[in-house]
Design a protein around this nucleic acid. Structure first.
Length: 572
RNA sequence: GCGCCCGUAGCUCAGCUGGAUAGAGCGUCGGACUCCGACUCCGAAGGCCAUGCGUUCGAAUCGCACCGGGCGUACCA
């Protein structure tokens, strides 16, 4: 597709001394109202340069560009030069692109040859997968897909919380109150109950905490008995997680969790010593960060065992060496902002200039109407329950619709799961939110089912005239887009044209909601177009043009949903 | 205390790295199916963009201050 903004900037640059096209392109903006044109060039800033009133400048530019064939019209309003593009040309340009690229429409090769790592989801072993884990899982998955679409090689890492003092606690608890049989039958539920009991008992008997720390230290030293138990807990837990990931359609390239780095930490400490940044304080080994207005990073506890931060540093070193990443992205809750600032700084102090390639992508907290999530206190909503309820509700609704019986289950899953995922990705990730059943199970308005419905509706139209559609794809019929250049069609096609830029923006900001918002726009424009104009008209030429618009809308929605990890069924 | 984040319509949120009268959805009220899928569409009501000062030709957007909320703040993750 042609970049019409760039083209406009280029033409303006010829008329304006002292400004190059790149500067002008940055100044060009989109008018608040489409009746004011497709692009606008504000002239306020030129006033000083040309020592003239901005309105005058705008007027003169508009007059000079009056005959320019690249534009349908150039109009002056106040201090703005407003550009109206040739609708049919712009639409045709996009249609050709969509017909040719299909599922690839919106993809680019910006990141060719570069590797991006995304660490996301990362649940704790032996704890249930709840609504709080959904954000990292779904945001991380989408960021992966976005970077993949931008041409990067992506590596999806599930940094399982499979290590740390908590496993000391778990092992102590299992030995005291656990049963092998229960763990085999209901692994997470049983392990969790031991864990909860541990905390209750430890309140009465604080020596349990010391015992747990000692047990973890033995695990870290590779003692056989502890290691066997730990391995077993990990396997059982992973089996349950996989079920949820399958439902969400999410895959990982690596499950190297914290434990994977347990033997890679001495090196980290050696490097720190070489650089002379490690010091002893209150029996622990720390890196002092007071020069950077941060509390110290504790690298090694007084009992010799390591912490989260040490493992993250070891993991980053390993990943740099293994993958030579261009970017190393962490999709982790904003609660850990300080943690990431600390260890990014430590890495820099260790002399690694790639510390700036490490990016923390934080997101806001999820809470319940009854308060903060707490697995231990039973204040929790399980993700599986949410997904199942949503699927169930979808099944009820689509039973009477146009879904063949054999496709019902799959469709209920696509739409039900899609609703939950879409909902999760519709707001800026940094915002906190309160989980509400009403909200996830509401399918009206700006929701996944709304967008999916729009897609299914477009598919339905296309299904009715397969010959025409085939002809368009094969190129044996070339649509005359002048026959579909109404306001409704044009606004829709403008949104389609914008899609590749939207993908780039979402990548730059690490913000899937940019895509979510945009495909809602596309769906809204399509629904308006659909209502305003009959697509399957008698006249073939007119019909082909409107079908081309329909194909473009459907494809954009489908590709956008794919980047969110949401399916786009043809019927629902 | 200190640090970071959030504060836009009754509710949930957009608002592009400063621009032309601040936009959606939900909810409320009122309309549109003998017509390509009504999980749809159209219309109405609803705002001193928390507050104050500043920078600027121009501020919801940038800076400072202040209020309210969240998170974090040495051996949990």
């Amino acid at each position: 597709m042609k970049d019409l903004k760039k083209l406009t900037a280029g033409i303006l640059a010829e008329k304006l001394e002292g400004l190059d096209a790149a500067d002008i392109e940055k100044m060009i903006e989109t008018p608040p109202d489409s009746t004011l044109g497709d692009y606008a060039f504000p002239c306020f800033r030129l006033a000083k340069m040309f020592r003239k009133a901005p309105q005058m400048i705008a007027q003169e530019i508009a007059e000079q560009l009056a005959g320019e064939t690249a534009f349908h019209e150039v109009r002056n309003v106040n201090a703005y030069v407003n550009f109206f593009m040739n609708r049919a040309e712009a639409e045709a340009d996009a249609v050709v692109d969509v017909l040719e690229k299909k599922d690839e429409f919106g993809r680019s090769d910006l990141g060719a040859g570069k590797t991006v790592i995304v660490e996301f989801s990362s649940p704790n072993i032996a704890k249930p997968f709840h609504i709080g884990h959904l954000r990292s899982t779904v945001i991380g998955n989408s960021i992966n897909k976005i970077y993949d679409a931008l041409g990067y090689d992506v590596v999806r890492i599930n940094h399982l919380g499979d290590y740390g003092t908590q496993f000391g606690k778990m092992i102590v608890a299992y030995r005291k109150w656990g049963s092998e049989e229960d763990v085999r039958r209901e692994p997470i539920k049983s392990l969790l109950s031991y864990y909860v009991r541990f905390h209750d008992e430890a309140e009465k008997d604080p020596s349990l905490e010391d015992e747990a720390r000692a047990t973890f230290a033995r695990l870290e030293q590779g003692e056989k008995e502890e290691t066997e138990l730990w391995k077993w807990f990990r396997e059982e837990s992973l089996r349950e997680f996989t079920y949820v990931y399958d439902l969400l359609g999410i895959e990982f390239d690596s499950y190297a969790g914290e434990s994977f780095y347990s033997d890679k930490m001495d090196r980290v400490i050696d490097i720190m010593n070489e650089k002379g940044i490690l010091q002893e304080s209150q029996g622990a080994q720390i890196v002092d960060l007071s020069d950077y207005n941060m509390p110290p990073a504790i690298i090694r506890k007084k009992d010799g065992s390591t912490l989260y931060i040490t493992r993250d540093i070891a993991a980053a070193l390993y990943r740099k060496e293994t993958y030579d990443f261009f970017k190393n992205i962490y999709v982790v809750a904003s609660q850990q902002n300080l943690h990431f600032s600390q260890w990014f700084k430590v890495i820099e102090l260790m002399g690694f200039d790639w510390s700036e390639q490490c990016v923390h992508v934080p997101f806001g907290m999820v809470s319940l109407e009854s308060g903060t999530l707490s697995t231990r206190k039973g204040q929790v909503v399980f993700l599986l329950d949410v997904l199942n309820k949503s699927i169930e509700r979808t099944r009820e609704i689509i039973k009477e619709k146009n879904v063949p019986a054999e496709a019902l289950e799959q469709t209920a899953k696509d739409v039900g799961v899609g609703a939950v995922v879409f909902n999760e990705l519709s707001n800026n990730r940094i915002k906190d939110y309160v989980f509400s059943w009403d909200k996830v199970l509401n399918f009206d308005g700006e929701t996944g089912p709304y967008v999916q419905y729009t897609h299914a509706r477009a598919s339905s139209v296309l299904r009715r005239t397969e010959e025409d559609v085939k002809a368009l794809y094969e190129g044996s019929a070339v649509p005359d887009m002048a026959l579909a250049s109404s306001d409704a069609a044009y606004e829709l096609m403008k949104a389609v044209r914008k899609f590749p830029k939207i993908v780039e923006e979402a990548g730059e900001k690490y913000e899937p909601s940019v895509i979510t918002r945009h495909i809602i726009d596309v769906a809204q424009y399509f629904n308006k177009f659909y209502h305003d104009e009959h697509i399957l008209v008698e006249d073939r030429e007119e019909r082909l043009a409107r079908l081309a618009v329909t194909i473009a809308a459907k494809q954009t929605i489908k590709n956008g949903l794919a980047l969110l990890g949401v399916a786009a069924p043809d019927r629902m």
